[in-house]
């Protein structure tokens, strides 16, 4: 493997929301900046760049992770999912997104994409989560608008609907 030199841009190949994409990155480019400025996926927001606020959370190979604590060059060959990949169709929201809308789970919406990516990953593996478990997942995110209560309601409602759909299927 050649050493990628500082100050030079290097091609990267990865999957973004199921599609193969490529882009150029200096070794030091953060995944958050790569997604936003190189790939134009601005749904991922940047709130602190030290891994605390959670706004930049995306899914890397299925697991929620901070895009600001990841270098773009580490993502060669990885599968990344961002908030742009949640909706099943351009005119249809996912169950989770719909629940956020219904329960006013967002106000300014800045922290929302990160929260959705965490919850989406969590709800895939936990069909019937209790409130405490959801609070724990949410504790990796800071929201300054909602006071979390509407987010929690939205998450619980989404979990219920997802469980129901899984049961029906």
């Amino acid at each position: 493997m050649p050493r990628l030199k500082a100050g030079q841009r290097h091609w990267l190949h990865l999957t973004l929301n199921g599609k193969a994409v490529e882009g150029e990155a200096e070794p030091r480019l953060l995944l958050s900046d790569f997604l936003r400025y190189e790939l134009g996926a601005t749904g991922t927001h940047v709130g602190c760049e030290h891994g605390v606020c959670g706004a930049c959370t995306v899914q890397i190979d299925g697991a929620p992770a901070r895009a600001c604590l990841t270098l773009a060059v580490q993502m060669e060959g990885a599968a990344i999912r961002t908030v742009e990949g949640l909706a099943p169709a351009p005119d249809r929201l996912s169950i989770l997104q719909e629940a956020f809308r219904e329960h006013h789970g967002l106000q300014c919406g800045f922290c929302t994409p990160g929260i959705l990516m965490s919850l989406d990953a969590f709800l895939r593996e936990h069909r019937r989560p209790n409130e405490a478990a959801l609070r724990e997942v949410l504790s990796g995110h800071l929201c300054r608008c909602t006071g979390y209560a509407p987010i929690l309601r939205a998450a619980l409602a989404a979990a219920e609907r997802l469980a129901k759909e899984a049961g029906d299927a």
């Binding site: 030290h50 606020c53 609070r135 724990e136 504790s139 800071l142 006071g147 979390y148 209560a149």
Partner: peptide, 15 residues
């Protein structure tokens, strides 16, 4: 930083 300026999370805020 947000590691020292402590904004409450969902674990700390009851409804």
């Amino acid at each position: 930083t947000f590691a020292d300026y402590l904004v409450p999370t969902a674990m700390e805020v009851p409804e």
